[in-house]
Each structure stands twice: as structure tokens, then as C-alpha cells.
């Protein structure tokens, strides 16, 4: 629309403004002027903002109601003291004589966590179990994801379905099924004895072994799926290019496939590691009495000791222990990604 004013050299100076006003007239005759245009976009912008707000707002509201608020309640209880009654803890805010408001922050629960080695040992053990479970899940899940991603496209959907299929059964039932497999007169021991390979049952259940079997089995799909997603979209001509340039298959895997699947490895490991740290059901059912994991400690504080304040402190401490390294890690990852973008 500003074409005439864009090329003043072509037109005599006097014709410039005239031409422009003519053009403007033509535009407004056609029902289009700059003003109209702006009003239209403002309206559009408003609806767009509203639409975006709704789409983002709903999940935010959900998280606020069902995550942040409960979390704040737990935080509040962690600063209270145990008492007999309902609720079984002292209030945070209290009117004294009806004249002044008293805030009581009891830090003793956190101090107690540090004093009793049970809690620190349980935390460290949980981290250890989660770490090795993640490593095992990666060692098993990577070849699985790789094989699925490299299989025929028609077969991929079937394999993926097989990975997801266990989810259709209750998690609890699947863990109980492992008891049936691992117990002294269970599937494995009976089978081995029938074959005459062993004379008495191997102690499989309620050991570290059964604990790892349970966790790795339960969380394996969370490792396989993100790995599959990264491996599947990888350009296979990259591997061909590596081979073409004289790189043998295993080295091509190490120098090309593995580094390019790093995002999948990170995502899968996070999805296994984080829930594994706080896992309660599997150590309780498969891990036996000796297994010390923070989820179990938390549960017994809540339900056996009925000490809500200490239990809440355990939960908050676990969250901090977990969140801080994750945030630091994420921050580092993002920085690295940005650096990669820039270079």
C-alpha cells in the first residue's frame, strides 16, 4: 500500500503525497484502512490470549489444587509437633488469649532426621537402589528400544504394544506375580528342583535381587519408550555414512548412535530414577524386612508410629534431596543445549 512512497525517485516530488492519498482513498473505499486492520488484530489478539490462557490455565489449576496445596499442607505439618488427638499434630497458627497470633515452627522433626542414622541410611540406600535400578533398566532397555526401532515398520507397532501391554494389568498384581515366581516353592525354584539342578530352594524372594527385579521390571517401559522415540527418528543414513567412511559397526554405534540418543537416555533414566527413589510397594512386597528405603520408612512413620510431623518432614526432605539435583541437572542440560545451539 505504500508503494508510491517507497519509490520517491521515480515520481516527481509533488506527486508523492498525492499518490499516497489516492491510494489511501482506494483502500478505505474497499473497506480496508490501517485503523480497521489494527482493530481486527487487537480483537484477534484478545481471543488468542484468552484461548491460550484457558489451555495453559486448566493444567495449572489442576496442579495448584492437587499438587501444590497438598504439598503446602504436608510442609505445614512437618513444622508441627506430635500430639495425641485429631488431627494428630499441633496447629501452626494459634490465638493466645484471643489477643495475639502465635506461629509455632517446630524444627525438631528435621533435627530428628539428622540425629537418627536410620533416616540418612534409608535416604542413601534409596539413592543407591534407584541408581543401580536405572543402570540395569538402561542396560536392558537400550537393546530393546534399539531392536524395536530397527525392526520392520509393520512389526514396530506390535513390539511397542508388547512393551505397553503390562500396564493393562494392575501394578500391584504384577508385583504379586513376581512373588509367585520367586518364592521358595515358586515357579523358578520348583522348576530348577524338578530339573534336578538344585536340592533346596534358592533364596530369591525378599533379597536385594528380588528388589531389583521388581523395580527394573516395573519401570522398564519408562526407559524403553523415550529411548525408542529418539532412536526411531534417527536418520539411518548417518550409520551408513559412518560405515562408508570406514567405521566398523560397533564403533559407529559408539560414535554416532549413542551420542545422538543421549536425550532419550537422560529422559528414560529420569523417569526410572525419580519414582524408584521413593518407591514403597516393591521394597515392601519383594524386598523383605531388611530393605531400608525411604518410602518404607515414610510409610511406617505415618501408619505404624502415627507420627505425622516426622513423616511429613521425611517427605519434604526427600523432595528437597531429589528436586535440587534434578533442577541443577536440568539447568546444566539446558545450558549445554544452548551452547550447542550457539557454536
Amino acid at each position: 500500500m505504500s508503494a508510491p512512497s517507497d519509490s520517491p525517485r521515480d515520481a516527481p516530488p509533488a506527486a508523492g503525497p498525492l499518490a499516497r492519498s489516492e491510494a489511501e482513498q482506494a483502500w478505505s473505499r474497499a473497506g480496508w484502512s490501517d485503523g480497521d486492520d489494527r482493530r481486527l488484530t487487537r480483537l484477534q489478539r484478545l481471543t488468542a490470549r484468552f484461548g491460550r490462557g484457558t489451555v495453559i490455565g486448566v493444567p495449572y489449576l489442576w496442579l495448584l489444587l492437587f499438587f501444590l496445596l497438598p504439598f503446602l499442607i504436608v510442609l505445614k505439618i512437618s513444622f508441627a509437633e506430635f500430639r495425641l488427638g485429631l488431627p494428630p499434630y499441633t496447629p501452626l497458627l494459634e490465638w493466645i488469649d484471643g489477643t495475639y497470633l502465635q506461629i509455632r515452627l517446630a524444627l525438631g522433626n528435621y533435627q530428628f532426621l539428622l540425629e537418627d542414622p536410620l533416616y540418612i541410611t534409608a535416604y542413601l540406600n534409596s539413592l543407591k537402589v534407584a541408581f543401580f535400578s536405572t543402570v540395569f533398566a538402561l542396560l536392558i532397555g537400550y537393546p530393546m528400544a534399539y531392536a524395536i526401532a530397527r525392526s520392520k515398520p509393520s512389526l514396530r507397532a506390535v513390539f511397542l504394544l508388547l512393551v505397553i501391554l503390562p500396564f493393562w494389568t494392575s501394578f500391584l498384581i504384577r508385583v504379586y506375580a513376581w512373588i509367585g515366581i520367586l518364592k521358595n516353592n515358586g515357579l523358578i525354584n520348583n522348576g530348577l528342583m524338578a530339573l534336578g539342578l538344585i536340592d533346596e530352594p534358592l533364596p530369591l524372594l525378599n533379597t536385594e535381587f528380588s528388589l531389583y527385579v521388581g523395580i527394573v521390571y516395573s519401570y522398564l517401559p519408562f526407559m524403553v519408550l523415550p529411548l525408542y522415540a529418539t532412536l526411531e527418528k534417527m536418520d539411518t543414513s548417518l550409520i551408513e555414512a559412518a560405515a562408508d567412511l570406514g567405521c566398523r559397526p560397533f564403533k559407529a554405534f559408539l560414535t554416532v548412535t549413542l551420542p545422538l540418543s543421549l536425550p532419550g537416555i537422560v529422559a528414560g533414566s529420569m523417569l526410572v530414577f525419580i519414582p524408584a527413589v521413593g518407591e514403597f510397594v516393591i521394597p515392601d512386597l519383594l524386598g523383605g524386612a531388611g530393605t531400608l528405603m525411604i518410602g518404607k520408612v515414610l510409610w511406617s512413620e505415618f501408619f505404624n508410629n502415627r507420627d505425622w510431623p516426622v513423616a511429613s518432614a521425611v517427605a519434604i526432605a526427600m523432595l528437597i534431596f531429589l528436586v535440587i539435583p534434578i533442577v541443577v541437572f536440568q539447568h546444566y542440560q539446558q545450558k549445554q543445549a544452548e551452547r550447542a545451539e550457539e557454536s
Partner: peptide
């Protein structure tokens, strides 16, 4: 022999 790929296949 070496090949130049249609997609270039740069790492």
C-alpha cells in the same frame, strides 16, 4: 569408495 548422500547425512 566414498559416498555423498542425498540427505548429506552430516553428523
Amino acid at each position: 569408495v566414498n559416498m555423498m548422500f542425498q540427505s548429506y547425512a552430516l553428523f
